[in-house]
Design a protein around this nucleic acid. Structure first.
Lengths: 212, 212
DNA sequence: CGGAATCTTGACCAAGTTCAAGCGGTGTGG
DNA sequence: CCACACCGCTTGAACTTGGTCAAGATTCCG
């Protein structure tokens, strides 16, 4: 449902892109343990990142502890560019994660490439707004599973890197609701749950028709 | 709460911006009656727009009629740039509206300026995600009123160009809930309601402390 | 003045939250 | 090696927020 706008892999080095440009040569690769912070709210924006392996969550905390995850980033996807000089969200590795890191210089020089990425990010945020603003719990979960499946290469069996709590905070639900909906989808035969993090999409069309 | 990232006025022609660049000369100015469509979902993306006067809503419809307004654009603000070749949202004039229209050429040549706009749009969408995903009805309305007030120049008395239905569809609520919360805020003395569209923010700090 | 939007209000209802308990796997220390 | 504690997940029951449905009130205009 909201996979449509999602390129399978984002990259600064498009092999055959319309622009022909690419960010040159060697760049840092950093490794992060699960839960490790990549940047914090308030930090200066001076790099951007591409996930080599693993997964990342971007989120914000409210003063009373409520958390909103605004995006996940899987292998191949870029993140870290923001409007102002300071980050307004936290970024954390979800699993064992390796990142390609791009410095300030490239970011300023490659505004055309960054523009495409920013516009793609905007599109995804807007799709997500639609899901959170106007869809019920089942629809949100269905859309989420399809989106992740699509981003992992339209696989039938997907490995969720994130916890139920992460999913809940991404979809504006509680962990209990996520859990309940998952089991309900399993009972209805739309998905299989090998374990909590391993989902088989047994009836993709049925799932798709769920998120109107 | 989410006004912080919002420049008071966005422009392709920043008088004293860091870039120094500006998009040259004459461009079309178009007028729209209330409710008139500016572009539709599926239309080719070939212009972008700056609101001269009036207000615009950007939205998407679900097949069963549910609507999500993803953004409003007030005087000075730009919209219309999207990731793909086709629009994935509708744009409509809310009130009597005049728009400055920019063609394809400038859009391709001014990626730096567009990048800033896209990043600002991304920031706003993400803030909005936080509001819709994790805040209750009162918090949403409080944040909304403060945001609009800020964007109209931090005025105490604000004129809402949009209907209760527009607000509801923007905040992921129903028109009834919006109405109830408004009257409750009035009863508590946080705002005054001259008429439904004219709001006095009598206690801005109290309102601010509402949206945690 | 009449009619149509738009907005408000009330009573009831339901989806999702909260609170609480239990399950299952994993890792650790006795 | 087993016992135990921990963590993430699931499940159930009661509750609450916001939604639905229905009726009025207001405003806007012709």
């Amino acid at each position: 449902m909201y996979a449509a706008s999602q390129p399978a892999v984002q990259s600064f080095q498009p092999s055959d892109s319309a622009t022909g440009a690419s960010i040159p040569g060697p760049h840092l690769v950093a490794a992060y343990k699960p839960g490790r912070e990549i940047y914090a709210e308030g930090d200066a924006v001076e790099r951007c990142y591409q996930v080599a392996t693993g997964a990342v969550r971007i989120y914000r905390l409210l003063s009373d502890g409520r958390r909103q995850v605004v995006s996940f980033h899987l292998a191949g996807e870029m993140f870290g560019f923001e409007a102002g000089a300071r980050h307004r969200f936290f970024a954390e590795a979800i699993t064992e994660t390796r990142l390609a890191v791009f410095g300030r210089r490239p970011m300023q020089e490659y505004s055309r490439e960054l523009l495409a990425l920013a516009l793609a990010g905007l599109a995804r945020a807007q799709e997500h707004l639609l899901v959170i603003g106007r869809q019920c719990a089942v629809e949100r979960i269905a859309a989420f599973l399809l989106d992740i499946s699509y981003r992992q290469g339209d696989v039938r069996q997907l490995k969720l890197p994130m916890s139920r709590q992460d999913i809940a905070d991404y979809l504006g639900l509680t962990i209990e609701t996520v859990s309940r909906v998952m089991t309900r989808l399993k009972e209805r035969g739309l998905i299989g749950l090998r374990d909590a993090r391993t989902v088989d999409i047994t009836k993709p069309d049925a799932l798709r028709s769920l998120c109107s």
